[in-house]
Amino acid sequence: MRPLFFLTGKASMKIAFGLLAALLATGAAHAEAEFDVEAAAGQCAACHGAEGLPSDPAIPIIHGQEFFYLYTQLKDYAAERRANDIMSPMAAQFDRSQMKALAQYFSDKSWPAIQTKTQEGDAQLAQRAMSRGQCSACHGEWQGDSRIPRAAGQQPGYLEKTMKDFKNEVRLNAAAKISVMKKVEDDEIEALARYLGDL
């Protein structure tokens, strides 16, 4: 489950809050019952996609994402280390074992293919940014591993927003990324987002 802050339109906000209310109600009614991961995960489908294809370019793919990364993000939303008006209260209703179950549920799914259009010169700009930030030291070939999220084939809109959020100190739960992204120009971020989305 990932941020819904990109839903800026009134209709989208209504959907989001409706889902939130439904989820909260579900959680209250079945607080003592066995955790139904399918039902909980179903609430995420409206934005993240029933088949894993998000409804908006700025929403991340979570089908097939790394288990430990997803679990960590849910913990960070709940603790507001990754503060978000929608995701923080949603995550806060789950205990750690439920967060793990959700993370495992999405991690076990297949990563969906998306269509991304790169522009001429993207690869060069992306390489320049990757070299400066020594990105491969952690991200390797961008396929993800445990704590490191998969970025290859991720939604370019989400990648761009995330990198800019780090740069502009909007997203704070991976502090080391802030210093790195501050050195990267906006056009390099945009090129890198398209480049990664196309991998």
Partner: peptide
């Protein structure tokens, strides 16, 4: 998490 206290 990664704790560099900045960046090189």
């Amino acid at each position: 998490k990664l704790w560099l206290g900045g960046s090189f």
